[in-house]
């Protein structure tokens, strides 16, 4: 069973009298454990795709199944429950709460999941340890470097042990050396079996994924599969 299944999904925004087709009839599958990159220039529809996959938005038509469950008919609270328990978000600009420490930021999804404070702390520390930031747990975001902030955000995404890690331009705000560090984390998570979906416009970053989906004007133009996989199959 696919973790992500799009069946002719369209998304139409209305801007005054004008209709904007952000997604046109997109059909797409992603298997559990896959590492997929979505590429496209700005305005290609990849952000809309990302929002729908992340259950932040709903398709105008067509159906979207996340982990076997139809999302189109769910209520706001049910969407929030999916985001809370099954999806981890990583954003380009980190999106950490500046007034809270790294540890408190990582704990936040667990607060909404109703985990007890003691267990929350343990799990958050474990997640920070996983990204190599255990010694920075009590620092505020402004006391951290860009790479450290993004690693905190990854720890926050991982803390509730999601089914899917959704990363929107995770290296966009970082220098290339730090970007490579972050991509190394993604690769090792993938190696441990995590499903990862990455949105980027950088070819080099997309190369880390096993499958690259190209977007243009709200449509998938091509899908590239990694050669290594085929080489391994031989």
């Amino acid at each position: 069973m696919s973790i992500i299944a799009f069946d002719s999904v369209s998304k139409v925004y209305r801007m005054g009298s004008e209709e904007i087709h952000a997604l046109r009839d997109v059909t797409f599958r992603m298997a559990p454990g896959d590492f997929t990159a979505i590429m496209g220039s700005s305005g290609s529809g990849k952000s809309t795709m990302m929002n729908i996959i992340g259950c932040l938005d709903r398709p105008t038509s067509g159906s979207y199944y996340f982990d076997g469950r139809s999302v189109g008919t769910l209520k706001e609270a049910q969407l929030a429950a999916i985001r809370r328990s099954k999806i981890g978000f990583v954003f380009q600009s980190f999106h950490l709460l500046t007034r809270a420490s790294a540890l408190e930021n990582v704990e936040m999804p667990l607060v909404y999941a109703g985990v007890s404070p003691k267990k929350r702390r343990q799990q958050a520390l474990a997640a920070l340890d996983q990204v190599g930031l255990a010694d920075r747990a009590h620092h505020r975001p402004y006391e951290l470097s860009g790479g450290q902030m993004q690693r905190t955000a990854i720890a926050r995404a991982l803390v509730n042990r999601p089914r899917l890690l959704l990363a929107d331009e995770p290296t966009g705000a970082l220098d290339s050396a730090t970007g490579h560090e972050i991509m190394a984390i993604f690769r090792s998570l993938h190696a441990e079996g995590m499903s990862i979906l990455l949105v980027t416009h950088e070819q080099e970053i997309a190369q880390c994924a096993r499958m690259i989906v190209h977007f243009r004007d709200g449509e998938i133009t091509s899908v590239t599969k990694e050669q290594r996989e085929e080489a391994a199959a031989l």
Partner: peptide, 16 residues
């Protein structure tokens, strides 16, 4: 507003 967006994205419901 941004804090609210973050809280919503990581699973906070409107009620929260």
């Amino acid at each position: 507003t941004k804090e609210i967006g973050i809280r919503r994205a990581i699973g906070g419901t409107p009620k929260d």
